[in-house]
Amino acid sequence: MILSNTETIPGYTITHHIGLVQGNTVRAKHVGRDLMAGLKNIVGGELKGYTELLEDARQEATQRMIAEAEAKGANAIVNVRFSTSAITSGASELYVYGTGVVLG
């Protein structure tokens, strides 16, 4: 599966548009991580636990998008976009979407 956030891929021709494919996941923070984050809020800097959590979640969302594209017969996803939104104070939604295409 070829993934790109550009609309076209030079050297390849899009022979068929499959349509919008997407993947999402909602992750909640973990108490231990949150405790560390509380301490970090005194000195500032990176919240590594959160970085890893969101990174994992984003990979999972991407895998779901790829699975949907494969099921629909696409061999590439173009114009991929990521979006994150905090839905409640302890949880975030990671969303990834793009256009599934068949490259010739």
Binding site: I2, L3, S4, N5, T6, E7, T8, I9, P10, G11, Y12, A37, K40, N41, I42, V43, G44, G45, E46, L47, K48, Y50, T51, L54, E55, R58, A76, V80, F82
Partner: peptide, 26 residues
């Protein structure tokens, strides 16, 4: 830029992320 040069090989989507604290002092 949205238009990318041709390289003969499939492109790869790459990401980099960081979560930073909004510290109390700030």
């Amino acid at each position: 830029l949205k238009t990318i040069p041709e390289s003969g090989q499939p492109p790869i989507l790459v990401t980099g992320s960081v979560v930073i604290a909004f510290d109390y002092f700030r």
